[in-house]
Amino acid sequence: MFILRFVVAPIIAILGAIFVGLIIMGIDRILAARMQSRVGPPLRQPFWDVKKLMIKENIIPENAISWLFNAAPVICLAVVSTILLYLPLAGFSPILAAHGDLIVVVYLLILPALAKVIGGFASGSPFASVGAQREMVMMMSYEFPLAIIAVSVAWLLSKVHPSLDAFSLQAIATHPVWGLVKGPLGIVGLILLLVSLLVVTPGELSVIPFDLPDAPTEIVGGVLAEYSGRNYALFYLASAVKLVVLPSLLIAIFFPYGISGLFNVGAAAAGVIDVVFFLVKLFVILFFSVTCVHVLAARLKIDQLVNTYFMAMTAVSLVGLVLIVLDAAI
């Protein structure tokens, strides 16, 4: 039982997330191409990209601090995979539920960006340094709305069910937030929180319009400018897993519903139905908050980005928090 829970299940979760992430990346590229009236690459293109990067030469620049430079991609992929184990995926309880909650997830979400910052500074290239500075600024701006969302949801849960562990993601997922509020004020507050989490998602994934740390046309790939071969492939895989992690967090907080209860089927079939429905939710969220946005928008400047997150999104999520508190008070 111990081996099943702490060895087999994490391996399945991580490999599955890498697979799903790469597939979603392929779908995203095809859809973006179709929206620009292009044909787009085959669905398997991200797999071929990774396979190709694995055989390329792994260059370590002369100016780089080699051990930090090589460690950064490994840390990035490892941390992103670890976050996955704290999240309730497709109706299953988190694998590490007893060892961490929402606060750990919010903290761990900083680390992939931090790994990129370390890699950028360690590569000793001016482009990578600029990218790393931007990554840091961005990280500080989107962490604040994210923290407010986490606090609001936990406060709401602790108010309605004082006996539960309010920060536990499993408790949040089994008691959907929409059922905890009393009136329209609370619903509006939750919608505002949802909007701000939907805006934080593309920032965490650093896609256009929030791709300032990478900015290919501006600072030639930013933090990834000096990476090639296997190291770059690890960053590529980490960004694929991130595509699963962030929507999973959003699903766990706002849409933790399953549809297997509607069908009169056995436990195994219900599990399959839940997994499929989870993937559909994942895909829909990414379609609206990533694919559509990065086709429509152009890259923001760094001050516009900080204003978006630190001013606008913080204000939106704070108003959401205040509305929820008012809703509980009256």
Binding site: V39, G40, P41, Q45, K52, P216, T217, G221, A225, S228
Partner: peptide, 17 residues
């Protein structure tokens, strides 16, 4: 549309074939 053959333009020579 070069992307349908898997060809993309990279920003930096480090990534290029």
């Amino acid at each position: 549309d070069m992307e349908r053959f898997g060809m993309i333009i990279t920003p930096t020579p480090r990534h290029a074939d």
